[in-house]
Design a protein around this nucleic acid. Structure first.
Lengths: 211, 211
DNA sequence: TAGATTGTTAATCGATTAACAATC
DNA sequence: TAGATTGTTAATCGATTAACAATC
């Protein structure tokens, strides 16, 4: 029983994908599924699926398989999607605006409670139900509203300062779209670097490698 | 000498990060660096850095280290950033528009040569130096211009059809922002799934796990 | 009960780290 | 030359896959 030991990032990164596939199965009226069949659909091995699920509990029934809807809700709970972590967005330029309006935060376990920018042209603009605030209001806002997570859609040059400041203000996690590599924010800050450029460059590599 | 054997994805995914750090070093006037010092800055081990570089060649000098600028250009070349792969964007909504205008494709080994949408409200709009075309023009455009890569910023429901069509039109790689999981496009299609929602959910997991 | 499929232990595979001879 | 650091082989670690007893 490997329950409760620290879960590896490899497993964690597969959870949202299971969540997605289970949602589709559920929507298609599939009520139960075996690890073998799920493996086939997801291009994984049945072994891996069973190992992954057993990190968190015994969700299946021997000789039968897994109940799709129940498993879906277990993974939802494991991912923490049932409690909304308050988050703020720093940088409401092109990318920031898109993220704010397109991400369906409340389906992903987050609630966007504040948007900040330092450009006077952008401050005051409405984005969904929020109004872009000045970065000068950040300290007071955080003290009052205690956001846990910050989304960074800012230029590389301003990132180190912002990260430093937000860490002091109690931010525990960063979703980082900036080109700055957050490695030394705070030893136990949780960082998810998105780095779309890196992703694009690996495609460049793999496409040329093909020839 | 492990040269020319198939390079693992773990190594490939580190290359853009090396590229970024070397750029910064170069900009800060650092001309040479040892694997030990680079490891310290990047939070890696010196061993790993030397192993990684030696997948592609012998770029260092024993007793001395690596020349920053030379190594930077080697990695640029390895990533294929010196030749621009022609790419098209499908879906010019919020996310598609942001990607088109913010990505600096030509610095990442790509050239955006066409943008397509099926919404009449969007078709005809200018984005940078391009004009959004109708998806009806896709076949003719691809036959004439031979794009190699497609960026998908479309809803999950339209994705399977588009992927199928583009594969037939000779697209070799997909940069996929849609929620659809491209697994069965073509056995040797190159796919980079971005899945921002998945990324956000892993943050949700890790933040609640902390408590 | 027999058949099926899980949960879990053991074996394998691959990636990372350590060690050290080669050499600048 | 002596000191430093690479390139590369060997050892370790972790993740994936295979096997199988438990059990529905």
């Amino acid at each position: 029983m490997s329950r409760n030991e620290r879960i590896s990032m490899s497993v964690i990164r597969r959870l949202p994908r299971y969540y997605r596939f289970l949602y589709d199965l559920k929507e298609n009226g599939v009520t139960r599924i075996s690890s073998r069949e799920l493996a086939q659909r997801m291009h994984l091995t049945a072994s891996q699926i069973r190992q992954d699920f057993n990190c968190f509990g015994e969700f299946g029934q021997q000789g039968y398989g897994y109940m799709v809807e129940q498993l879906y809700h277990e993974i939802e709970r494991i991912l923490g999607l049932d409690q909304l972590t308050p988050a703020i967005l720093i940088g409401a330029g092109n990318m920031g605006h898109t993220i704010a309006t397109q991400m369906h935060f409340e389906r992903r376990g987050m609630k966007l409670i504040g948007i900040f920018d330092k450009n006077p042209q952008i401050i005051g603009n409405p984005i969904d139900k929020l109004t872009v605030l000045s970065e000068d209001e950040l300290v007071e806002f955080c003290q009052e509203n205690r956001p846990q997570m910050a989304i960074l859609c800012i230029p590389k040059t301003s990132a180190p300062g912002v990260v430093q400041k937000l860490t002091e203000l109690g931010i525990k996690g960063f979703w980082n779209f900036s080109h700055y590599d957050i490695t030394d924010a705070h030893p136990d800050a949780i960082v998810e670097n998105v780095h779309l450029s890196d992703s694009l460059m690996t495609l460049s590599y793999r496409l040329q490698e093909k020839d």
